[in-house]
Amino acid sequence: MGHGGDVIAELTSDHEEVEELFSTIEELPSGDEQRKQYADQVTMELVRHSVAEEEYLYPAVREHIDGGDALADKELRDHAAAEQTMKDLEGCAADDPRFDMLMNKLMTEIRAHVVDEENNLFPRLRDACTPEMLNELGDKVRQAKKTAPTRPHPSAPDKPPANKLLAPGAGMVDRLRDMMSGRGKS
């Protein structure tokens, strides 16, 4: 992830990449070890994406959109539910009886979240912000994804300033763990 453009183009491209990974998982037979590898990859992408949204998108929503506090709070609740599902999925092998159920739950949660963001939040943000503001947010989101965690941390703070302070450290630890385990390399 890291595509360029304004924040809406950046995040929409992320959504498309995640959907491609979901489609690949759905095409593989139940129990196939590759499903776990793709699930790890989708988790890595989703966590980075979510952290960047929590650091920059949702504060902008709160600041620039009428009713933005309620909208951002709803999106954060969606993130919390998906992050817990990813945490539960993290401990499952592809042949674990819970794997398919958790993967289906995650896909349902994320697909509903994406539809909500793309049909509700993004148009409202585009109407409320200048193109320059949206481009600046895109740059900030891309930077945040570079240092963001790659593993779910359901107990981590999801609002500034705590999330901006803690996410890079957790990200460094996660990337080290990924490097040592080979997670996300295939």
Rank of each mutant, 00 (worst) to 15 (best):
A39Q: 06
L165G: 05
D6P: 13
T85D: 07
G138Q: 01
A170F: 08
D174R: 05
F22E: 03
N104T: 01
L134W: 00
L165S: 09
D158H: 01
D69R: 06
S23P: 02
L57N: 01
D100C: 07
E55A: 09
S50W: 06
L11N: 11
L57D: 02
P131Y: 00
G31Q: 05
L102K: 01
D66G: 14
A60G: 10
N135M: 08
E19T: 14
D88V: 06
R77N: 13
E75Q: 15
R98A: 14
S23K: 15
M133P: 02
E16F: 07
E19S: 12
S23Y: 10
L165W: 13
T85H: 09
L11C: 10
L165F: 04
H3E: 11
D32G: 02
V7Y: 05
D139F: 02
V114F: 09
K36P: 08
D158R: 02
S181D: 05
Y38N: 01
K159S: 05
S186W: 15
S186L: 12
A70F: 12
A112L: 09
D139C: 03
Q143V: 11
P149C: 07
R175G: 07
R183L: 09
G171F: 09
E109V: 07
K105R: 15
R126G: 01
K145P: 08
L28I: 10
A94Y: 02
T24H: 08
K146F: 00
A52H: 07
D116N: 08
A80K: 15
C92N: 04
I65T: 10
V42L: 15
F122H: 15
A167G: 04
Q41S: 05
L46M: 07
L46W: 00
A167N: 15
G5D: 08
F99D: 01
A39N: 04
T150P: 01
I8H: 11
I65W: 13
E45S: 12
T24D: 01
H15D: 09
H79G: 10
M101C: 03
E132H: 14
E118T: 09
M101T: 04
D32F: 00
A170T: 11
D95L: 12
C92E: 03
C92M: 14
E54W: 13
K185C: 06
P123L: 06
H15M: 12
N104L: 11
E33I: 07
K87M: 11
K159T: 15
C92V: 07
V141Q: 02
H49C: 10
E54N: 07
M44T: 04
S186V: 12
A70V: 12
E17Y: 14
K164C: 03
E54P: 07
E90H: 03
H3M: 00
K164S: 05
H79Q: 14
T150K: 06
P59T: 08
K164P: 07
E16V: 11
P97I: 00
M179V: 04
L137E: 12
D127H: 05
